[in-house]
Amino acid sequence: MEQLFFFYFAAVIAVASVLVVALRNPIYSALSLLIMFFHVAGLYVSLRAEFLAAVQVIVYAGAILVLYLFVVMLLNLKQDDRYHRQWPVAGVVGLTLAVEAVMLTLLKGRAIPPAPANTNETVEGLGNTEALGDALYSTYLFPFEVASLILLVAMIGAIILAKKDIGGSEA
């Protein structure tokens, strides 16, 4: 049963992601992105990470996608097929790589991977949100802070690149 759900979510994610880049109308692309986000959230639920699933829906499907749609509609993008000439090459290379990876995995077979550090029991004892918060603010404090620095850089960078008067012109 779990496997069934996994393959359903995985297949839809893969197809929707391809559609995001393949569709010519930007609105359709954004909508397939939405489908993709929802199925990723589904994948999180099937992995019993409910908190992540909720965050995925609220942040990605809710906030970020609406922002995308605003930008697309404000800019009034026309259909653009400049980037669709490389499709045959991309298709051949992508398919070859995918087949190669699958063949390699199937032919050689693989051992069961070791269990990750946080097992289901710890998560269930603490509850999803608490376990995540605990890991983020203790073990993974440093990467967490670096990630916040990255967001700071992205924000200031966007402001600098977009602000009106440049350099000497104001002086």
Binding site: Y140, F142, P143, V146, A147, L149, I150, V153, A154, I156, G157, I160, L161, I166
Partner: peptide, 26 residues
């Protein structure tokens, strides 16, 4: 010493460089 830290460091560096490459906006 962890792939996660290394990845985040790479992103921090690259993101700053993306902005710096575009600073000559004229």
């Amino acid at each position: 010493a962890d792939l996660l830290t290394i990845y985040l460091g790479t992103e921090l560096m690259s993101l700053s460089l993306y902005v710096m490459a575009g600073l000559k906006r004229s």
